[in-house]
Computed example of a mutant assay.
Amino acid sequence: MSEQQGRSIRCLVAKVGLDGHDRGAHVIARAFRDAGFEVIYSGLHKAPEDIVQAAVQEDVDVLGISILSGAHNTLVPKIMSGLEEYGAKKDTLVLVGGVIPEEDKPGLKEEGVAAVFGPGTSMEETIEFVRSNAPDR
């Protein structure tokens, strides 16, 4: 079981905005759970503020944002700003998954997103990234 200082890696898999496509979020949530991570799923249609509140209240190590609506350049910065406001940005590994154009990835990383995973990324690659990069707390 993957652990950090005696506890499982805690992950919030979140759907932000009006995006109603949640199959990928369910697949990654199950893969994370099967890898030994503790997983919380936000449900659909969450506002950035809702996701920030859940991440802070649940004290997650990893926030995986699933977004297919094309609003990533608007919604993800709001989430990152909210995490910063609560002092949680530096202690949270933030990942984005979805169909994100290559030209948008550098801007997301400048906001503090650790990695952007697109269609076709293997579960093993994503799980290994989390194990290697989740903050030690």
Rank of each mutant, 00 (worst) to 15 (best):
Q57D: 11
D19H: 07
P119F: 15
V99S: 10
D34V: 13
K15Q: 11
L63F: 02
E49C: 09
D61F: 03
E58T: 04
S122A: 10
V60Y: 03
M80P: 01
V39F: 12
S69C: 15
K78V: 01
R23A: 10
S69N: 15
Q5C: 14
P48M: 02
S42Y: 03
I65D: 03
T92P: 05
P77I: 05
A88R: 09
A47I: 06
D19K: 07
E111K: 08
G112K: 14
E103Q: 04
L75Q: 11
V16D: 03
G98K: 12
V16R: 10
L108E: 01
G112E: 08
G24I: 11
C11V: 12
E111M: 08
I79E: 04
H21T: 05
E124W: 04
I28W: 12
C11H: 10
T126K: 10
S81R: 09
K78P: 02
M123H: 09
D22V: 13
E128G: 05
G107A: 10
P106N: 01
E49G: 13
S2P: 11
G17M: 05
L93A: 13
E84A: 10
S8E: 13
L12N: 07
K78I: 00
L12T: 06
G118A: 14
K89H: 08
L63Q: 01
Y86R: 09
R30V: 05
A31F: 10
K105T: 00
L95I: 01
A35Y: 10
G118W: 01
D136W: 15
G24D: 07
D61Y: 04
A115Q: 05
L68D: 02
H72T: 12
T126D: 00
P48Q: 02
A71Y: 06
G24S: 11
G24F: 05
I28H: 04
G17N: 03
K89E: 07
G82Y: 10
E38T: 06
Y41F: 11
G70S: 06
I9M: 14
A134F: 11
S66K: 02
S132K: 15
L93K: 09
S132C: 12
I79A: 09
Q5D: 15
D19T: 04
G70Q: 05
Q5P: 08
T74I: 06
F117N: 00
R131T: 04
Y86N: 13
V52Q: 14
S66N: 01
N73Q: 12
A134P: 08
I65M: 14
R10F: 12
M1W: 04
L18C: 08
R33N: 08
G107W: 00
V52M: 13
S81Q: 11
G120I: 06
L68Q: 09
S81E: 13
V94F: 00
A134R: 15
A54H: 06
E128D: 15
K89W: 03
V27F: 12
F32H: 06
